[in-house]
Simulated scan of single mutants.
Amino acid sequence: MIKISPSILASDFANLERESKTMVAAGADMLHVDVMDGHFVPNISLGAPVVAALRPKLPITFDVHLMITNPLQYLPDFVKAGSDIITFHYESDDDPREVIRAIRAAGKRVGVSVKPKTPAQEIFPLLEEVDMVLVMTVEPGFGGQKFMDDMLPKIRQIREKANALGKTDLDIQVDGGIADATAPLVAAAGANVLVAGSSLFRQDDYAAGILKLRRAAEEAYAK
């Protein structure tokens, strides 16, 4: 099943609540919240207060992506704020299994993300412990980057390994340069959760944009 997770990093921050509500009404499956600390990545973005402010307004899954150096330090804030899925980076300074245990103990779904230069094999030992793997298809830290098609083999390798382990329900998410032209590529490789930012928020009709993106991915994923 294809899931669409619009990245609110690409929204108009002056109208964040309105735009988020419109995207939810348009058929989004979840909302992607990019959290950057200015250290793990060279940018600063949204934090737990934003999640907490939006949570009562939006009846949708909050898909929170922690691009931060020390996820364990800030995890309680994002749990309290109302995150549903918390994804941390394998390359962060904290021990991956400690982070996984902490997220799971808080009753949240667990995601692990890998930067483009991290081989798929690095996270194979973690596949049975997480609910989702996020494959970055751009370098994390900035929106609007060009899709890196050399990440397609990585997606395929993770899907094949997950299936071999019997983890057929593993969500594989992709983030970076996802649009109508790239959605079929990542879906054919095995990704089923698509993060889309500027390609959705720049459209006048969010519902039409989500539908078109979903159909493009579904046709490729089913093959």
Rank of each mutant, 00 (worst) to 15 (best):
L9Q: 01
S83D: 07
A53R: 12
A48E: 06
D94V: 15
L200E: 02
D77R: 10
D204V: 05
T118K: 12
L127C: 09
A207P: 00
E219Y: 10
A216C: 03
L66P: 03
Y221Q: 15
S113V: 09
Q173S: 11
P153E: 11
I4T: 02
E219H: 14
I2G: 00
G107A: 07
D84C: 12
K161H: 07
D12W: 14
G177K: 01
Q173W: 09
D37P: 01
T22L: 08
M136T: 14
G27M: 01
D131R: 09
P140G: 11
P116L: 06
A188W: 06
S199L: 03
R97A: 04
D63H: 08
S45Y: 10
G144K: 11
L75E: 00
K223L: 09
P71F: 07
Q73C: 01
P119L: 04
G143W: 04
L54C: 11
E19L: 11
R215L: 08
G47I: 08
V110T: 05
D34R: 02
D169W: 13
Y206W: 04
S113D: 11
K57P: 00
F13Q: 13
M151F: 09
R55A: 02
Y74S: 01
A28F: 03
K117V: 07
A187S: 14
F78I: 01
E218Y: 10
T168R: 10
K161L: 04
F201W: 15
R215T: 14
D169F: 09
G166R: 10
Q121C: 03
S113F: 12
I178Y: 02
M148I: 14
A196D: 03
A188F: 12
P71N: 07
D37A: 03
